Simulated assay, not measured.
Amino acid sequence: MLTARIDLGAIAHNTRVLKRLAGDARLMCVVKADAYNHGAERVVPVMDAAGADAFGVATLEEAAAVRALTDAPVLAWLWVPGQPIPDGVELGVPTMEHLRWLIDAPSAPPAGTPLHIKVDTGMHRSGLGRHEWDEAFARAAQAGLNVVGLFSHLAVADDPADPYTGAQAESFQEAVRAAAAAGLSPTVRHLANTPALLSRPDLAFDQVRAGLGLYGLEPIAGGDHGLRPAMTWSAPVLAVKRLAAGEPVSYGLTWSAPRDGYTAVIPAGYADGVARSWQGAFTVTVAGKQYPQVGRVCMDQFIVWLGDNEDGVRVGDDAVIFGAGGVSATEFAAGVGTINYEVVCAPKGRTRRVYGGDILAGEKE
């Protein structure tokens, strides 16, 4: 009953838009977390056909699955030394421990495995620190490792006014120079994520890593680059109930009807990704009209207040949680106090995906 409708035509459109914006740089499509919960098996071939030059994922398991769907390079950057490395996968190298294992361990992948060394330019999450660059680059060069890439992650590119991005870019340039001085010549330097692609074309280098924008969501508040949201999350109205003024609803009796009126029950709960903490902070849309969620979110269902139900909401009507016909994922995120990245990753449990959309529409736009 609970459905995530995925518009593959929107995915194709967004890929083409971002490909154009990337200019001469390669477009890496980031499809980690099952393509931001849109379904990598269906999404990757669409992106591939629409102009993707490479794909990026987090884990090796994800990399193996994506590698089976495309002939384009697939980079994984979350792994630990000793893990079996799938054939044909490119590896990010985030620490000296990873580099030492690649050089010294008998179980390491073949020396020709394409590697992307990750440098920490100020996000302080993973990546080689500045004090490690010279040793790491020298060891990689001396060992004859196939270092094809150098990359880093930006911390605040979604705020174009923040000067920290510029400082990170300068640090990245320093890393590029240090790698060259050590005898490395990576041909795929990549720093820009979707917000940097949209706001800092000077940071494109050889490749950009697009993520959120591929799924039609703007990473910068107020931005509009003609992207089309691909996901709509909805469920049918399960029940409509009449309430008298003062009658409470759901567990804990945390909300009571302010007057005589009606509620609707929607069959989606925290087991499906509707967080319990979202209570009272979001709406659903039925036939173009928004209705507030009230009372505790349960494991399998939540309740909305219809007031007088003057528009005649009834059992079986489609209630849009976010997406086409309702609020956007970005608007929904603002209401519940999170970001649109998390919102599109929320649908789970008994949510089933349904695919549609013309992937060839606007191909030459």
Rank of each mutant, 00 (worst) to 15 (best):
T3H: 11
I6P: 02
I11R: 01
H13E: 01
R16D: 00
R16M: 01
L18E: 04
K19E: 00
G23I: 06
A25C: 02
A35S: 14
Y36G: 00
H38F: 09
M47T: 01
M47W: 08
M47H: 14
A54T: 00
V74E: 07
I85D: 00
P86C: 05
G88M: 02
V93F: 02
L99M: 13
P110V: 11
P110E: 11
L115P: 02
R125A: 06
R130G: 01
H131R: 13
A136K: 04
L150A: 01
L154V: 06
V156D: 10
D158S: 15
D159S: 10
D162N: 15
P186M: 07
T187R: 14
N193G: 15
T194Y: 04
A196Y: 02
L214N: 06
L227G: 06
D260A: 12
Y262H: 15
V265H: 06
G269V: 11
Y270W: 15
A275C: 08
R276F: 08
V284F: 11
V286Q: 07
V286P: 03
V294I: 14
V294N: 01
C298I: 01
F302R: 01
W305S: 11
V313T: 09
V313K: 03
V315L: 13
V315M: 12
V320F: 06
A324H: 15
G326Q: 07
V327R: 12
S328V: 05
T330L: 04
E331K: 06
A333M: 04
A333W: 06
G335H: 04
Y341M: 14
A346W: 01
R352N: 02
G356T: 13
G357L: 12
L360G: 10
L360M: 10
E363V: 14
E365Q: 11
